[in-house]
Amino acid sequence: MARRFVTLDVFTEQRLAGNPLAVVLDAEGLDTAAMQAIAQEFNLSETVFVMPPTEARHRASLRIFTPGRELPFAGHPTVGTAVLLALQDPSRGDARAFGLEERIGIVPCVVETLADGSGGRARFRLPILPEYLGPGPEPALLAPLLGLKPADIGTGRHAPSRHGVGPSFTCVPVGSVTALDAARPAQAPDPNDGLYLYTPDPEGTGQSWRVRMFAPNFGVTEDPATGSAASAFAGVLMQFEALGDGTHDVAIRQGEAMGRPSEIALQLTIEAGALRSVEIGGAAVIVADGTLHV
C-alpha cells in the first residue's frame, strides 16, 4: 500500500538544521512491528505515524517511535506534526488550535503557518506536569561516563537530578559551555533515561541554557533538539532556580555540537509557588515528501 510521508526540520526556521522528523500520513493498518521497522528504516531520532482521532473534536491520533522503541510523548514530533497538519488544512487561517491524541494524553496545540506553505511555528501545552524522580548519580560516577572531570559537574545550586514527563531523563548540570562541548555521548546509568546535559548560555539573557541529550539505548546517540527533555527541564528549574510567581520564558539552544543548531522556547507558569503549566514552542520547515510502499 502506498502511504505518503513528509520530512521536516524542527525547532529551526532553516532547512538542514534543527532536528529531522519523518511523519507517515494515513498510517491506518500498520501494526506496532511495522511502525517500529519503518522508524528503523528512517533512522531519525523520531518518526510519527498519523491516524484518525478517536474523538472527532481532535485533529489526529499520533504514535511516535525512535529507532529503538515507542514513546508516549515527544516534543519535536508534536511541533513538527502540528505544523504539517495545519498546513494540510484547506481552511487554515493565520492560526489554528487543535488537540493531538498521544499516549500521554491530549496535547493542545496552537499553530501559525507561513503563507507559502513551507512551514510554521507551533506551541503546545503539556497534558501532565514534570515529575521529580529523585536525585541523580554522583558526579564521580557521571564524569567518567562523559569523559569529564567530577569538578565539571554542577553549576550554581544545580546538582544531578532525575525528572520525567512520559520519557524520563537524568539531568546533569555542567559548569561551562567548554565542558558541555567536550562531553562524549553516553547512556544514563538508569537504562530507561535519556542523559540531558545543561549549562547557562553565556550568550543569552535571563533564563537561557545550552543543552545536549544522549539516549543510545533508544537508538539516539545524540539528539539535535529534544522537546520532551526541555519539558522535564521545567522540573529542574523549579527545583534549583529561584523562580517567583508569574510566567517565565526560557530559551534553550541545542544541537550546536552536531552542526544542527536548534532553538526551543520553554514557558513556565507558576502560581502560589507551584508549577501550573508548561508550554513548548518552536518552528518547523518542510524538507521533502515521498511515498512508502508498505
Rank of each mutant, 00 (worst) to 15 (best):
P173R: 03
A151T: 15
A182V: 03
R162Y: 04
G154Q: 13
P173W: 07
R184A: 11
S161F: 03
V174I: 09
R157T: 13
G154T: 11
P167H: 06
T170A: 03
S161T: 14
R184G: 04
H158F: 15
L180T: 01
V172R: 07
T170Q: 00
R157E: 14
A183Y: 08
A183R: 08
P173Y: 00
Q187P: 08
T170R: 00
G166A: 11
A159I: 12
V174L: 00
P160V: 02
T170N: 01
G154W: 13
A151Y: 02
I153H: 09
S161M: 06
H163S: 09
A159F: 11
P167I: 06
G166S: 09
T155F: 15
V177E: 14
H158A: 15
G156H: 11
A186L: 08
R162P: 04
G164Q: 05
T170M: 00
T170C: 06
F169T: 06
G154S: 14
D152Q: 09
P167N: 08
A182T: 07
P160T: 05
P160Y: 02
G154L: 14
V174R: 08
R184D: 06
A186W: 04
H163P: 07
A179T: 12
H158C: 15
G156A: 08
A186T: 06
G156Q: 10
H163T: 05
P160W: 05
S168K: 12
Q187M: 01
